[in-house]
């Protein structure tokens, strides 16, 4: 009950019903993915205490937030930060007063001083680059700036859990990629668990430790970031050996890009089946974004030949090359037309 957010809840509305029975680990980032209208936002609102119509049981941090004994603990007592899709800034206050709104109420929290120590005001302003915005009114901020202020205001209140409700969806495409590092740095600064809701898998992939998939008001799957992969994608565990002038050498191959990772760092390489453009016996120096060393594995149960990359079996039939049917054990080089670098697989 202390290290998990326990949800056994239902919320019924005309044309929609949410029913969730799940425990979410209270550490790292939990991504909630699913189509629009699948109940992702409703789930966050119930967790925050913003849905008085919800029934059932919610508990976290050794406290019961909702249940037959306590009724409904109001949102303002839960110390759960919420970053809204549309920022929801206070339009009658400038940015500094918006930020301080959270800060002032952090001390006034019901559970008193000890647990209320969040990041310093200056650190938050610095991390989110808010110095130059402090005197501005929210009406004069861009979409990206509004979300940075909203994030900062949330951190100021020293929450124990941060709920991110599609924080990037109301922002234009260019600002979106700028905002992602701010999101990551904010969560690192706060040092508290977060639940990140989005319908964009690409957005979630950048910072998910575990994933819940929702559909029609139900949690339909839970697992690691493989749930966020696009159709036909493959994840490969990789380790950096050396970052040199001509790219990054990996234990499983080579990337043309110089990754910003130290030697020994582990990560996952995401490749889509259609990005593996070429397989050849010995052709080195092919113009490609990267190369992977693979080995022909014994054929699968259906008789399809398989490949093996660093002991990971790969459901990737070898494309017709110089040799029609490579023999098991034979080494191959896969040329990659594209790839994506993801954080390593979460421990759970």
């Amino acid at each position: 009950m202390c290290s998990e957010l326990i949800l056994e809840l239902a919320l019924r509305r005309p044309g929609f019903d949410l029913a969730v029975d799940h425990a979410i680990a209270l550490r790292g980032v939990t991504a909630v993915s699913g189509p629009s209208g699948s109940g992702k936002t409703s789930l966050l609102r119930v967790i925050a205490g913003l849905e008085p119509g919800a029934t059932g049981h919610v508990s976290a941090f050794c406290e019961e937030w909702q249940g037959p004994k306590v009724g409904l603990m109001p949102a303002w007592r839960r110390r759960v930060g919420y970053v809204f899709q549309e920022a929801a800034l206070f339009d009658h206050m400038n940015v500094a007063r918006n930020l301080d709104y959270g800060l002032e109420r952090r001390r006034a929290g019901p559970s008193g001083g000890a647990g209320q120590r969040g990041p310093e005001r200056d650190a938050i302003i610095d991390t989110l680059r808010l110095e130059r915005l402090l005197d501005r009114m929210p009406g004069r901020l861009s979409g990206g700036e509004r979300q940075r202020v909203a994030l900062g205001r949330c951190l100021m209140s020293a929450p124990r859990l941060i709920l991110l409700d599609e924080p990037l969806s109301a922002v234009d495409h260019a600002s979106r990629s700028e905002l992602i590092p701010y999101l990551q740095r904010s969560l690192a600064l706060a040092g508290v668990p977060a639940i990140h809701v989005s319908h964009s898998r690409a957005e979630l992939r950048k910072m998910a430790d575990r994933v819940l998939r929702m559909d029609a008001g139900r949690i339909t799957a839970s697992g690691g970031s493989e749930l966020l992969l696009p159709e036909g994608a493959i994840l490969l565990d990789a380790r950096v050996l050396e970052v040199g002038p001509e790219g990054t050498r990996l234990d499983i191959g080579h990337l043309g890009q110089r990754l910003d990772l130290p030697p020994g760092a582990e990560f996952q390489l995401m490749v889509r089946r259609d990005q593996v453009v070429r397989i050849s016996g010995s052709e080195a120096g092919v113009a490609a974004a990267g190369r992977i060393e693979a080995r022909v594995a014994p054929p699968g149960p259906d008789g399809m030949p398989l490949l093996e990359v660093a002991r990971q079996a790969l459901a990737l039939p070898p494309v017709a090359g110089p040799q029609e049917t490579p023999a098991p054990g034979e080494a191959l080089t896969l040329a990659l037309a594209g790839y994506e670098v993801l954080p390593p697989r979460a421990a759970d």
Binding site: A48, G49, L50, P74, A75, W76, R77, R78, R79, V80, G81, Y82, F84, A88, L89, F90, Y101, G102, R105, R106, A108, G109, A150, R153, C154, M156, S157, P159
Partner: peptide, 9 residues
Amino acid sequence: EAAATLGAG
């Protein structure tokens, strides 16, 4: 709602 999540009664 934002004010409530920031701790305002």
